[in-house]
Simulated scan of single mutants.
Amino acid sequence: MAPCRATRPDRRPLPLCRDPRQSDRRGSAAGRHLARQTRIFRRSQFRPTLGPLAAHRPVQRRGSDRGRRHSGRSPLIELSFNEVETLSAKAARGAGFSWGLAEDIGRAARALAADGQDWGSAMLSLVENARSFEAPDLIRAARWYEGKGEGEGGANIAAGKPLCPAKTAALLLDHPPPADAMPLTILDVGLPVWLDAMLRRSAMRLAHVPALSVSRADVVIEHRSGIGQPRAGSRRAVEQQTLVALNSFAAKTYVPESERSRVRGAGGGRVDDE
């Protein structure tokens, strides 16, 4: 193999990362050391058809660099909407919700991401406070369907814990209140933004949607004239610390590894017939 020739002095040095869709001033390419570039090249399993390449020649970006952005606080990881829904459903199940509610929460998280909201922080607040919520009792639910709200003119039922937004939304979706009960006032709902997100695909909505940072508030349910369309896009970013915390809840749904799983799993045992 012929030795690599040095770069001619009259030519401009080639960038370490070349992509026709991006400029050569990318931060991840400008600071890449030649030794790192050489290590990436030597780990390549296939040689290019153009002949041998030297360490100073450009190579493609690493797979670990894709989908990452940086903010002032923590690196941002971009996830697709399918990944947002799947991760949120697993994290909700790991926090103690049933699989049915967990799937509804996953779809609600996808709706928040499609609207461009900070779905990661909202999801982390929901799973961290899942044990501090309580489900709607029969007395309160009966007054809803009788058209007796909990505001003025209704019974002010004070509860020590806020209502669970997921279980409250599931009750309203499974048994919608009658038309004469609207608008319906519900007191002390925890994280009410999730109640609005889970009612997106129904004929009900919150009259005033609170901010993501509101931990508990009184809400008013009213009829929805039409179902709005989410914003365009297919990916949303989440902070790396938030992603690690959500994965810790999702890991609670995994089956612990055992000797039996090693033997009976795919490729396990003494003989591999696959």
Rank of each mutant, 00 (worst) to 15 (best):
H56C: 13
S98N: 10
P176L: 08
A266G: 11
I221N: 00
L126Y: 03
Q45H: 03
E222P: 10
Q240G: 06
M1V: 10
R107G: 14
A141W: 04
G233L: 07
G160S: 15
W194C: 00
G226N: 12
G151I: 01
S44N: 10
L195K: 06
P165W: 04
E274S: 15
D174C: 09
L34T: 07
P230N: 11
G63L: 13
A159Q: 14
G153Y: 03
I139R: 14
S261K: 15
K252A: 10
Q45V: 08
R200H: 05
F249R: 02
L246H: 05
R270A: 15
L79T: 09
L191T: 01
R32A: 05
A113N: 11
G154W: 03
R224K: 15
R262N: 06
A6G: 14
P20N: 04
I186S: 08
P48N: 02
P162M: 02
T7C: 11
S98K: 02
R131L: 13
G147F: 01
L53K: 13
A142P: 02
R73W: 11
G63Y: 04
A2Q: 15
D115Q: 14
R25M: 05
V238H: 00
S215T: 12
G233C: 09
L195W: 05
R200M: 00
A122C: 14
G94M: 02
D272L: 06
D196R: 05
S98E: 06
S225A: 12
P176D: 08
A2P: 15
A130F: 01
E103A: 15
P162E: 04
H70S: 06
G31Y: 14
L16V: 03
N156T: 11
F81T: 06
C164R: 09
I139P: 00
E85P: 01
M198F: 01
G72Y: 12
P20Q: 07
A232F: 08
P136S: 05
